Structure formats: structure tokens, C-alpha cells
Amino acid sequence: MDTSAIFSSTDRQKLLTKFQHLPADAQKHGKGWSELWQENVTPWDRNAPSPALVDTLQSKSAVLGTSTDKETGARKRVLVPGCGKGYDVLLFASHGYDSFGLDIAPEAVERANKLAQEPEVAEKYPCGSDNTRGQAKVFLGNFFADDFFEHTGGKGEFDVIYDYTFLCALPPAMRPQWAKRMSELLGPNGHLVCLEFPLGKEPKTGGPPHGVTEPLFEQLLKRPGEEVQYDEEGYVVDSQHGETAPHGLVRVDRWKAERTHEAGAGKDHVSIWTHA
């Protein structure tokens, strides 16, 4: 499937022109996302969590473990960067996690907090098997800075981090920063869950969303912070040289999503990573 076909031609053009000439700077790109929210140009907003994440939380407890620490009984902490209106934040909370959503666009945060107050939330996001609900909090902040720690109890370490339409929204020059930051924020026994999207989109068509591949995730997370090499078509070169760095992440599971949003149907994969 051509994922660009899910967006209207007008929305695709607005996304392209909004970001194509911006430098690889989080704040400048944040302004672009804020303007799109103001203009109600949000083709990425599906009004619900991805079914692939719903299925992951229901079927991958053997990998992710429980939502509470077995020794202390404390709720595990989840970070969802680029959370938009916070559907995934609410879903994690319904499974018993203390869930924190982060977005750089004030308009997205405002809408997320409004959504969280709607009376239908408990019905739309029923509690999981243990019948407990964690806190769900969405706040304004820059993923690449530490200021948002004030909203997470002063802690910058998380048991689960979830990435969906976040890496693909970043300019390729910022990808090594993304990997380094993921490694820094993920707790020693934590898990990074990546819903890999959009797979199958040619990188040369630009973005956002920028096309991603399985080797891209592997190379970025193997040696966080280091540059990866691309061929002339924009695909990452699958280099086998170099061992996983001490602060690198290794993949513990990957599968094709049986259910997902229409934009990634038939192609989306979910991968789970942990510290080497």
C-alpha cells in the first residue's frame, strides 16, 4: 500500500511544504506541528489508539511483564513522545501503567487534556485484567530536553517507551539523536515498543512521514547517537560491522501487526527493544 494515498493531496502538500526547508531543530519543527494543529490539518489523527498497540498490550505480557513492579508494587512508568491527543496514553493507563504523554505542540496538549476529561473515557478505555487504572498525564515539552521531567515526578527514566509516528516525523538528520535519547530515557530493564510506520514508503519521496525500514531501526538502536549510512535512494545501508554499543538496544521480538490503522494495513510491524 502507498501510505501517501491515505492522506489527501492537499494535506500531503501542506506537510511537505511545512517542513522541507526547516533545519534539523526540534523547536523549529515544533512550531510547524503547532501550526498544523491550529489549521486542523491532522491527517495522522485516527481518533483511537492503534489496534496494533491494543493487541500488543493484550498478548505480549510475557515480554513486557506486568504493569507493576513485582518487588515494590509501584506502577511502571510509560512515556509516549509525540502523543498528539493522547489516545495511547489513555490506553496504557487503562492497563495499569502511570502513563505520560509528551508533545511539542500546545494545541495537541490542550486537545489531549480535554479528551481525558470526557465522561466516555472510562467506557472507551476499560481497565485491563487487574481492574486497576494508572494515571494519564499529557504535557507540553521537548523530547530532547530535560524540562519535562518536572511533570514526571522529577524522573527521566521509564519502564516502557512507545514510538508511533514519532521517528518518522523527524527529519533524517535527527534520527541519531532520537536513538540516543531513547537509550537514555529507557530504564535498565525497560522496553521500547516501536510500531514501525511507514514501511514500504520510498525515502526519496520525503516526509513527514519519512519512510522507515527494519534495518533503520536496527542500525540506529544498535549504536545510539552514531550516524547511519544511506544509499543513493535514501535507504539505510545494512552494515554488519561493529558490535552493539554498551548503551545500545537489542531487539527481543518483532512481528507483523494483524490489526492496525488503515494507513499501515498489511505492512506495519511491531518491535520491542531492551538494553543490551
Score class of each variant (00 low, 15 high):
Gly156Asn: 10
Trp178Met: 02
Met174Leu: 13
Ile161Tyr: 01
Asp146Arg: 09
Cys168Phe: 02
Ala136Pro: 12
Leu170Asp: 00
Ile161Cys: 02
Phe148Glu: 01
Glu157Met: 04
Phe143Trp: 03
Tyr164Lys: 09
Glu150Val: 14
Pro171Asn: 05
Phe149Gln: 07
Phe139Ser: 03
Thr165Asp: 10
Ala136Phe: 08
Asn131Pro: 07
Pro172Asn: 10
Thr165Trp: 04
Asp146Leu: 06
Pro176Glu: 03
Pro171Gln: 07
Tyr164Val: 11
Trp178Val: 01
Glu157Phe: 01
Phe144Val: 06
Val160Gln: 01
Thr165Ile: 14
Asp163Ile: 05
Thr152Leu: 05
Leu170Trp: 00
Leu167Lys: 05
Phe148Trp: 10
Met174Glu: 00
Ala145Cys: 11
Asp147Met: 07
Glu150Ala: 14
Arg175Gly: 07
Pro171Ala: 06
Cys168Trp: 01
Phe139Trp: 09
Ala145Gln: 15
Ile161Met: 02
Trp178Cys: 00
Ala179Cys: 11
Val138Trp: 07
Leu140His: 12
Ala179Asp: 08
Leu140Val: 12
Thr165Arg: 09
Ile161Ala: 00
Ala173Tyr: 09
Asn131Met: 15
Leu140Glu: 12
Gln177Cys: 11
Met174Lys: 00
Asp159Phe: 02
Tyr162Cys: 11
Gly156Ser: 10
His151Tyr: 04
Gly154Ala: 07
Ile161Asn: 00
Val160Glu: 00
